[in-house]
Design a protein around this nucleic acid. Sequence first.
DNA 1: TTCTCCCGCCATGCG
DNA 2: CGCATGGCGGGAGAA
Length: 355
Amino acid sequence: MSSAIVVSQDAESLGLQIYSRKEKSLGVLVSNFLRLYNRDDVDLIGLDDAAGQLGVERRRIYDVVNILESIGIVARRGKNQYSWKGFGEIPRSLNELKEHGMRERLGDSSTNNSDKVSNDGEREEPLSLTPDDQENSSSSKMDQKKEKSLWLLSQNFVKMFLCSDDDLITLDSAAKALLSDSQDSVHMRTKVRRLYDIANVFASMNLIEKTHIPVTRKPAYRWLGSKSIAEKGSSLFNSDEPKKRVFGTEITNLRAKRNKTDCSSIRKQIGYKKHDQENTEQESKPAASKYVFGPFSPTGASKTNNNNVGKGRLLEIEALASTYQPQYCNHEITGLLGHFTEAWKKWYAEVDRNK
DNA sequence: TTCTCCCGCCATGCG
DNA sequence: CGCATGGCGGGAGAA
């Protein structure tokens, strides 16, 4: 027929940036975020700094930070600033959430089915983190609108796992439950969208795992929490990383952007000049720099591309990345969270003991 | 097609 | 007014 323009699979080598939705996921972002700030010498986190370091828009940092805050990993310190609390805070937060969850609607003893509805019927203020805070001003009702915040939704989502007896929860059921009532509607869809975001974040941290309802085949999530990693994670050799959808290898995310409002997406003429120019995209933000992580690679695909390094910060990042990175790592299990294992095990033990 | 869920518009709150 | 936050849902990738 006509001339068929074949876009070779390695268009990337031609300098084109292939848009990949996965590499832009919140899960990957969070992984990078944690890897970047999970250090003992880290205390304050600047939103602008984070956005710059991770190469994403500010808006995304808000998402990440809000979700992480719901678990106590970070805490808002002030304008443009959050403080790193660390994984050590997770057990505390979880216990607190569990208590509150149990307290506020013990429902469920009979009629245990796929979807149960356990929601807080109290109109009281959300939750008061920071158990003991000295000069804590009286809890004002200035947070009435927080009812729809990602932070709260995230906490409630976690509560479902901690307080429910069945460990498989679908986002639909979660949305339904956390929505007080009312069945389907536009609200449901929106809620589910948010739950997808949250679920991805927690899944990337191995707090939960995506699976399927036995027979129905419906996607659902299972709480991993205390076990799983604590057991299997003890020996990294015995890999079994669920092969999440986390396979980003760069902390800086400066991949091409999704085409906005279509039109004007005239495919660039593919010049036949074999020039490996690096990033040429990014319209408004020059992005801090570009660096690549070495250790692991997605799934067999070798992405070894370490030639030009923009900043010297690469070394810094790489150093931190390999802080806990064992030498023998090479399976995909290592994943992005390899160095979290230690921290995880620590609090897993604590939780276990507490139980 | 349906399921996921990223992107960024724009409402809201605070100097 | 500008700036910081962060709902919200359109609609483009992924199965």
